[in-house]
Amino acid sequence: MSNFQIIATSAMGIEAIVAKEVRALGYECKVENGRIEFTGDSAAIARANLWLRCADRIKIKVAAFKAETFDELFEQTKAIHWEDYLPVDAEFPVQGKSVKSKLFSVPDCQAIVKKAIVERMKSHYKQVNWFTENGPLFKLEVALLKDVATITLDTSGAALHKRGYRAAQGPAPIKETLAAAMIRLTNWHPDRPFRDPFCGSGTIPIEAALIGQNIAPGFNRDFISETWPWMDKEVWRAAREEAEDLARYDQPLNIMGSDIDHKMIEIASQNANEAGLGGIVRFKQMQVADFTSKEEYGVILGNPPYGERLGDRAEVENMYSEMGRAFSKLETWSVYMLTSYENFEQVYGKKATKKRKLFNGSIRTDLYQFWGPRPPRKTE
């Protein structure tokens, strides 16, 4: 197969950011809720896995068809050329989900898809009556939506937010993919100061450094499709070589994370070292009320405590107002804060230039954006 229908899955609210990343790799795409679809070869699969900072997974769309009965699901699944995807020893578990469909029993749908694939492979591989499934892993999913079954094959393995640098984490870590999306939504450039005053285990500053030096986020990890016999090793080698060539390791950066908890500062430093960014990203124990800077045109991005529990509410409100007072002195800086706290602007003491709805896991949050002035144009 030379070309595949590829799906990059995404958290709600950041599809447009993922689509922009897909287009930056050179692929035209269409955007739907939670997914970005594009066409590409095996190199596109490798490059998407290595480069997409804000996507959750990269999947191959094997087929999509109407299925209102189990017979239809079985026959149409069996008609797929599974021998093109699955070697004789493939391990192929089938996941499932069903929304607003006549076939609502997910375990039954999974069992029927599995049986149909086995029947197809029996007829193709002739002598085989049963399959050992002790070879490479192929994770399949059948998803039914309004009676349309879509069968996909996961090329990523572990979700893409697992970059491989998080040696340890704090109590409420933000996903690396969401951190990258938030950075994309700021107007930060690598030649400007970047600060995270609630850095926790360091995810936002580390993601900023990866963006600043154009380091592919998947560079430090493996992907399930690297084990597949029809994914040429040369394709992966070339994709990793491209990532190495495009990295700007000599790009100077002014990035710092701070946190009130000294244990988190130790963890953040350890994670930065794991990411190969030791000494490039700085970390410091500090409370947000003490934040000052003589620098100009910087960007502050943070994921502060939300005060979700009633007992924490007063403490969090006090911290938000202290933050507002500290940041009000930074006249040229831009500030971006993610929180689910609905009266944030009132307590912070300023109306946001813009708000953007984002989901931090299952928590509905807003990214409050307070835009500073544009930095003056640099003259040669």
Rank of each mutant, 00 (worst) to 15 (best):
V128I: 15
E317N: 11
P93L: 04
L144G: 08
A168N: 09
M121S: 06
Q287V: 04
K284H: 13
P373D: 11
K122G: 09
E342F: 00
N254C: 05
N3M: 09
L73M: 08
A159N: 07
G170C: 06
G279H: 07
R195W: 11
W188H: 09
Y336W: 14
P107V: 09
E296G: 05
E266W: 01
S334H: 07
G279Y: 05
F198V: 06
P375C: 07
D154C: 10
A239Y: 07
R221T: 00
L25N: 07
G302R: 04
E68R: 13
D56Y: 00
G298W: 05
I204D: 01
L301T: 05
P229D: 10
R374G: 01
M319N: 07
G279L: 04
D56G: 01
Y27D: 03
S98C: 06
E91H: 11
W188N: 08
T39N: 08
T339P: 14
D154E: 12
R356E: 15
E241K: 05
V288R: 00
G34M: 02
R47S: 06
E207T: 02
R120F: 02
G276K: 06
Q213Y: 00
Q251L: 03
L277G: 04
F327H: 13
I80K: 00
L358K: 04
S321V: 11
A143N: 14
E295Q: 15
Q251H: 05
Y341R: 15
L185D: 07
E308W: 01
Q287F: 01
P305Q: 10
T339L: 14
E91F: 06
G157W: 09
I36G: 04
G40R: 05
P136C: 13
K378S: 09
F194L: 08
I280A: 12
K20M: 01
V288K: 00
A159T: 08
A55P: 04
A90R: 10
Y306C: 08
V113W: 11
S201Y: 04
S42Y: 03
K284N: 13
D196I: 13
E315N: 14
E234Y: 03
E322V: 01
Q270G: 03
L52A: 09
Q110D: 09
E296Q: 14
P136K: 08
M319Q: 12
Y368K: 11
A289T: 09
I17K: 11
Y85W: 14
A172S: 12
E28A: 12
S258D: 07
F92C: 10
M1K: 11
K294P: 12
M1N: 10
N129D: 14
R240F: 03
I7V: 06
D89V: 03
V288S: 00
Y125M: 05
T177P: 06
Y341C: 10
R374K: 14
L140S: 10
L185V: 10
D154N: 15
W228A: 05
T353R: 08
F70K: 04
N303D: 12
I265G: 04
T186S: 15
P190G: 05
F138C: 08
V316D: 10
N187F: 00
L185M: 15
A272G: 03
V88C: 03
G40W: 02
R166C: 07
D312K: 12
A159L: 11
E296H: 09
